[in-house]
Design a protein around this nucleic acid. Structure first.
Lengths: 241, 241
DNA sequence: CCTACCGATCGGTAGG
DNA sequence: CCTACCGATCGGTAGG
């Protein structure tokens, strides 16, 4: 909205001072300056756009967010996002893909740093649930909610890319859920249990309020208590692993 | 899209044949014909609009559905929905309110016709879950999904109306969940358990495919198996009721 | 409920 | 990445 504020943000990033019209004509070659000598923050601007878009898409929805809103949020003018993305839909897809890659990375990292034995399925599930809540509700968590609630607005081809990433994400859960089912701690068909469980977790973006009392650990405890039954009597879950 | 098709639908409803310009000028009084002698389907048109809007809002989303889409779906012209609703947002709210009133009615009816004893909390929950799946996924179930996924687009005042209806809806569940918690069959804080459970159910609109194998009864079985634990050993749940 | 219309906004582009 | 712009579409309304 405020052009000077937007421009000052840009100015803080760029090395040269605010250009005079003459200086601009001299120093700025026309056409697309693909690579400058000191290779500035080319990819950074793209990520800024994605981040701002994620926040706005989550807050207002994809259709209700204009590309002008997004441009203004990063101090660009209305047409400039199309220098980085060929369409509004491509930007939405980039938000989702960035979200899934980040979620996958965080999940892998959580598993690695915990170094739990494969046999301890309940502890593994707890870790996955806690990480999932972090991805959904933690700081900077706009990407995955956008993916979950705006998937209607992407093309089939774009969705295929995300589906693959989602499958990778869920693939980590599957053996854990299978082990729990064998131990009698997860009841019912595993496939339906998984869908219902993810629903319970994903829906939390609708009601969770970080300013209220419950923490993400509280949510994790509640989810585990709800889903995971006591192990079958007289059988060690270790023996089933 | 096809004007003649849309009009033929209208013609089938109205008694007189397709008007000639002259006949229209003679037979149709100008201004708003509030009540005709044989009082046609005045309120019916309103409901038709709501139903068509629900279908389109669910399929494409509120923002991506134009009032022209809705008008065309019921054989009206572009400005005519505003004769029945003062704004697009009012139409959205009407869809949601109609959905909640219908859901409440179905829930009350299900409980009444089953005539279960108050002590049988698991059976009561099963009934509520099954009815909820029917409301979400059964025939003509566009209203509640729209309410669940488009609430961002209504005003605070409109939301207050729905919140009251939602509270009435959930109020029926609460004593059932409390009884199950006392019996040790529902684990964790009841409030969080309720939120997680509704999430698991509500999320099913994202993945349930009526053309595939699972039925709503299958879903109900899976949900009950997942959420409801075996009663505590040596204690009769009857004694706790 | 139709006809005819309006102002606003939007995604996107040419050209530099 | 900005400037200047375009065609399309949209919610809504006057007047009958």
């Amino acid at each position: 909205m405020d052009k000077s504020a937007a421009r000052s943000r840009t100015a803080a990033r760029a090395t040269p001072p605010l250009k005079t019209p003459v200086a601009a004509a001299e120093k700025r070659p026309r056409g697309r300056p693909r690579k400058t000598l000191d290779e500035r923050d080319d990819g950074n601007r793209r990520l800024e756009l994605i981040t701002a878009a994620a926040r706005l898409f989550r807050k207002k929805g994809f259709d209700a967010t204009s590309t002008r809103d997004i441009a203004a949020a990063v101090g660009m003018h209305s047409g400039s996002p199309f220098y980085h993305f060929k369409s509004k839909g491509a930007l939405l897809h980039a938000v989702m893909e960035e979200g899934m890659r980040s979620a996958l990375q965080r999940q892998a990292q959580a598993l690695q740093s915990a170094a739990l034995p494969d046999g301890d399925a309940p502890a593994l599930l707890r870790l996955l649930v806690r990480n999932h809540f972090g991805v959904l509700l933690g700081p900077g968590s706009d990407f995955i909610p956008v993916m979950l609630y705006e998937s209607r607005s992407i093309t089939a081809r774009q969705r295929a890319v995300l589906t693959k990433l989602q499958n990778d994400y869920e693939a980590v859960w599957e053996p854990v859920l299978e082990a729990l089912a064998r131990a009698g701690q997860l009841k019912g068909p595993v496939k339906l249990a998984r869908l219902l469980m993810f629903g319970a977790l994903n829906w939390s973006v609708q009601w969770f309020d970080a300013k209220k009392s419950a923490t993400l650990d509280d949510l994790t405890d509640a989810a585990m208590a709800l889903f995971i039954h006591a192990p079958a009597q007289g059988k060690s879950s270790k023996a089933l692993a």
